[in-house]
């Protein structure tokens, strides 16, 4: 990573609203061509961070540069090279699908002919060609989402910011969006995405930053984080005193946690659970691979955020 070009650099970045600190002295770097995920519960500060990157929110304290430009003084230049797909639908309901892209291109000063060409390409890429004459109200949630991402690409951005790109989509819709993001990654677009879906972060991101309460609590490659924090395999058993006692005896090295009425055992090697499963044939035990969600819950705790 050291040889790679740094595109975004945050140092001591802080955002405060009166007495509430949404982003609390964070440091991070994003390299050219990476897909970085900000992973965290609601209210962790993901969206606030992204909004500071595209100069929508002023920085309270610290430094934030995008392609070497200062967000506080060079907003216009930064916004010209960044594409933003916000969480909420802010497509222009007064226009058709195609016109949304054309009008948006005008805000970037893209000449009309060039805008028409790019709009046509984007509609094809996002499989929205047939809908180009439709009004926004006629689109499904998934189509709107794709159009928002298409719109974010109209200025051929160096950096694409995707704020919760698949929240509220059905499984089919999510996979279409994932495929499209994968394609963009292949084309070398630098992507920052926020999500609270662990599978999304694992599927798309080269690196994740786990944020909680305005701080980055862990950074790394998803697979490495899983191995480091939770190991390889997870055993899930309904709560049972006898089994718990046996687990503690059999697997003294394992990390045993009780989540509600379930026991979860994390181990750092494959096949460690075979003996215990054989010992309790009547007990419903599930062995699965450890995933990012385990890391996440381990690091942020199980408290509900709202």
């Amino acid at each position: 990573m050291t040889s790679m070009e740094v595109l975004i650099k945050a140092h001591n970045l802080t955002k405060r609203y009166n007495h509430f600190t949404a982003v609390d002295h964070i440091d991070f770097e994003v390299y050219k061509g990476e897909c970085v995920g900000f992973l965290g519960p609601n209210g962790a500060g993901k969206t606030t961070t992204v909004r500071m990157i595209y100069c929508f929110l002023p920085v309270t304290e610290g430094e934030l540069t995008v392609a070497g430009l200062n967000v506080s003084t060079q907003a216009r230049e930064i916004k010209g090279m960044v594409g933003v797909a916000p969480q909420e639908d802010n497509l222009d309901p007064d226009f058709t699908v195609l016109k949304n892209l054309q009008v948006y291109a005008r805000y970037f000063n893209i000449p009309k002919a060039e805008a028409a060409k790019r709009a046509a390409e984007l509609l094809r890429f996002f499989q929205l060609e047939e809908k180009q004459a439709r009004s926004i109200d006629e689109l499904s949630t998934g189509m709107k989402r794709r159009l928002i991402i298409a719109r974010a690409l109209i200025n051929q951005p160096q950096i694409l910011l995707l704020d919760e790109p698949t929240t509220g989509l059905d499984p089919q819709g999510r996979h279409i969006v994932w495929d499209e993001i994968h394609n963009l990654i292949k084309q070398g677009v630098t992507i920052i995405l926020t999500t609270h879906y662990m599978d999304e972060a694992a599927a798309l991101c080269d690196r994740v930053l786990i944020v909680d309460n305005g701080k980055i609590i862990e950074t790394g490659v998803p697979q490495k984080l899983i191995k480091e924090h939770v190991g390889e395999d997870v055993l899930e058993v309904p709560y049972n005193e006898v089994v718990l006692k046996a687990l503690k005896e059999e697997l003294p090295e394992a990390d045993i946690e009780i989540f509600g009425d379930q026991i979860r055992v994390f181990v750092n090697a494959h096949g460690a659970f075979e003996r215990i499963v054989k010992k309790f044939p009547g007990v419903n035990m599930t062995i699965r691979n450890a995933n990012l969600e385990d890391v996440f819950l381990k690091l942020t705790g199980r408290k509900l955020r709202e």
């Binding site: 595209y54 929508f56 216009r76 802010n90």
Partner: peptide, 14 residues
């Protein structure tokens, strides 16, 4: 309601 201003402010327009 339409958040049109937010959408425009994400472009080089202030």
């Amino acid at each position: 309601y339409q958040r049109t201003f937010d959408a425009i402010i994400a472009t080089p327009i202030n």
